[in-house]
């Protein structure tokens, strides 16, 4: 035993977090794994063991394929639309002026908004009868368009809303990182006659690479978990074409009380998340230092 009290700290400080986490996160995951081998409608005892049947049905389900693809599209949009946008804004706003602070507040506001409220507000905006869509169509004198009812376009609205809601969050991470870049470095580059773009490319971006990597990790896990926004916005429609993995789980597992089936979806999602995140972490983060 060391005399600096490290053992005491260990015994005192770790258990609350680990215990809570195990009881309310890990334990339900294991229960979900167990449930995924049963057919169960949520009522009564869990007795109908079906082996891997739920997984078999899931892998054949075309709506599930679509929702996997949708989640993948969200992931790409998060990385290639949202993060660049957040980065540009962060570069424009990282200096401490009161105008910048005001802009920051505005851009961060959607993140504070509840997902469920966000979905409600935007479903109102995309409304082809009473919303912006209707107004724009009216101004142009064209037929109104119903973007949320269109299989081709409905998912783009979800991508738009997700980007709208979360870009401010990533922007904050980047601003924080930029403020930590030593100013003498930037000034040195400028004195050497580097153009603003070059300063960004050769000095600022490399200095905040860690923040970008972390942000991408958050974007990946976040994109795979999109749910509350979809339900009020499209409810997965039209023709079940706009589900994410989680809204698929909610609709086909929870709302229809196929609890075993839903648990199987959860397990697949979990494996996907852990797989993607850990391989990303190994590839991008561990090589360049710690998280």
């Amino acid at each position: 035993m060391r005399s600096d009290g490290s053992l005491t700290a260990l015994m005192l400080f770790l258990p609350p977090a680990v215990l809570l986490f195990s009881l309310f996160v890990i334990w339900p995951i294991f229960t979900a794994v167990d449930l995924s081998f049963y057919k169960w409608n949520g009522y009564g005892d869990v007795t109908n063991f079906v082996g891997f049947d739920n997984y078999g049905i899931l892998l054949k389900n075309s709506i599930f394929h679509q929702s996997l693809f949708n989640s993948f599209k969200l992931l790409l949009a998060s990385i290639f639309l949202q993060i660049p946008l957040a980065l540009v804004l962060a570069l424009l706003l990282y200096r401490k002026t009161s105008a910048n602070t005001a802009f920051r507040l505005i851009f961060f506001a959607p993140y504070i908004l509840a997902e469920i409220a966000t979905g409600l507000i935007w479903s109102f905006i995309f409304d082809g009868d009473y919303g912006v869509s209707a107004m724009v169509a009216d101004k142009l004198g064209s037929e109104p368009f119903y973007i949320l009812a269109d299989k081709q376009w409905a998912f783009w609205t979800i991508i738009t809303v997700v980007v709208w809601k979360y870009f401010g969050y990533h922007m904050m991470i980047f601003i924080a990182a930029l403020q930590a870049v030593p100013t003498d470095l930037i000034e040195a580059a400028e004195i050497d006659g580097a153009s603003p773009l070059k300063t960004i490319w050769y000095v600022k971006l490399p200095m905040i690479l860690h923040a970008i990597k972390l942000s991408v990790l958050f974007a990946i896990t976040g994109a795979l978990q999109v749910f509350d926004i979809i339900i009020p916005l499209t409810n997965g429609g039209p023709s079940n074409s706009t589900h994410s993995i989680v809204s698929f789980l909610y609709t086909f597992g929870l709302a229809r009380m196929n609890v075993g089936f839903g648990a199987a979806v959860g397990v697949v999602l979990f494996i996907l998340c852990v797989g993607t995140a850990f391989s990303y972490k190994r590839l991008a983060i561990d090589k360049g230092g710690q998280l």
């Binding site: 409304d127 973007i147 009812a149 039209p238």
Partner: peptide, 20 residues
């Protein structure tokens, strides 16, 4: 009506009430 797949039942009631 156009966009009927983005009309929930309450809105449909409103549209009908509006003579649409």
């Amino acid at each position: 009506q156009p966009g009927f797949m983005d009309t929930d039942n309450s809105k449909a009631g409103g549209l009908f009430g509006d003579g649409r």
